[in-house]
């Protein structure tokens, strides 16, 4: 059945059972060597590469987390500073408002005094004027009385 002599296959060489011991012998050798290579070279190497990659990725993630924490801390700080600045601003505004009020009150007081003075003065002058006019009216009425009297006495 073996067809090696004339170098041409009769039927299927796969079914030439005389070659089976040889095939299986070499296959077993091949399998054992290949398994050894897989077990002792390929798998440790691949796992090493994978573990390294994992480690670096994990390291990067941890670093990113740390940076995130720092950022949130800085944000909190900024918030605090802003709050402080706001309260300071409020204080300053209150203080200046009070100052303005005080000064306004002072100015008001001043103007009050000035106006009362002016009013008093005006009243004084009005009084003077009134006194003057009273005297004049008296004089006129006296003259008027003497005229009326003379007219009445003449009419008699």
């Amino acid at each position: 059945m073996a067809s090696n002599s004339d170098n041409s296959a009769v039927g299927m060489p796969q079914l030439d059972f005389s070659t089976f011991p040889n095939q299986i012998f070499w296959l077993v050798v091949f399998c054992v060597v290949l398994f050894a290579i897989v077990k002792f070279f390929i798998i440790p190497r691949m796992e090493d590469i994978f573990a390294n990659r994992r480690k670096i990725i994990d390291g990067n993630i941890a670093k990113a987390e740390e940076i995130r924490l720092r950022v949130s801390e800085i944000e909190k700080q900024i918030e605090e500073e802003l709050q402080k600045a706001k309260s300071q601003c409020d204080e300053i505004m209150n203080a200046s408002g009070n100052n303005i009020k005080e000064q306004m009150a002072l100015a008001l007081e001043d103007s009050k005094i000035a106006t009362t003075q002016l009013i008093n003065e005006a009243e004084g002058r009005l009084k003077e004027l009134r006194d003057g006019s009273e005297a004049a009216i008296e004089k006129i009425s006296e003259e008027l009385a003497s005229v009326i009297i003379s007219k009445i006495s003449r009419g008699k």
């Binding site: 090696n4 002599s5 170098n7 296959a9 039927g11 060489p13 070659t19 040889n22 012998f25």
Partner: peptide, 20 residues
């Protein structure tokens, strides 16, 4: 000869095919 490519050929020991 489409099946010739599947012939097991002892390439070192001549024609005789032993298990080794």
């Amino acid at each position: 000869h489409p099946m010739d490519q599947f012939i097991i050929d002892p390439i070192l020991t001549g024609d005789s095919l032993e298990w080794y």
